[in-house]
Amino acid sequence: MEKFKILNSKVAYLDRSNVDTDAIIPKQFLKSIQRSGFGPYLFDEWRYLDHGEPGMDCSNRPLNKDFILNESRFQGAEILLTRKNFGCGSSREHAPWALLDYGFKVIISPSYADIFYNNCFKNGILPIILNNDLIDQLFIEVEKNVDYALTIDLEKQVIETPNNSWSFKVDEFKKHCLVNGLDDIGLTLQHVDEIKTFEVQHQQKFPWFYTQI
């Protein structure tokens, strides 16, 4: 996983709450057995006017001009500003894969669905939580200012806007993994002996969990 330290980027927004993972990446694209290549199908049903299928060349598909992320001002943005309960619904990690493949490395929202929130950290995406007032303010500023950009410093846990500096919260352990680009499995396997000791005791206590058919 790539290390995440500081990101400076312009901001795109999606002014909707409860954006679900079915919308982020529709189910037909979940048939892929790869981890990459989902970016062109991000928000597929909103983004294009035709019906998307896996493997389609998206360069010639008719774009929905009313879909805000298709606007030229938001091209190349690596920060997505959105509303509450982003990523609700299915556990599909294809959602963060698609966001990342499209180019988003930071999401800013008042809240996220739990599974999606966790999945972001596993893929090097930083989901930032800000209160509703700051979110409203950001929406206004992005709308008013062309190429409005933010600097996100994860180590300091600070968002620098052109006029302000706001701090944000993040779990210490999640931050540690993201800043250092650490592989969770590698970290856990440092505790092999503890897991084995636990497992022996657990099996003595609950032998019925260890049967097989």
Binding site: R35, S91, R92, N119, I195
Partner: peptide
């Protein structure tokens, strides 16, 4: 019982554990 993403599927397959915070 709870749902997990694919990275966590891999984590469980390899370690029989997950890194979690209590709800």
């Amino acid at each position: 019982a709870f749902g997990i993403g694919t990275s966590e599927v891999e984590h469980v397959l390899a370690t029989q554990c997950l890194l979690q915070k209590k709800s």
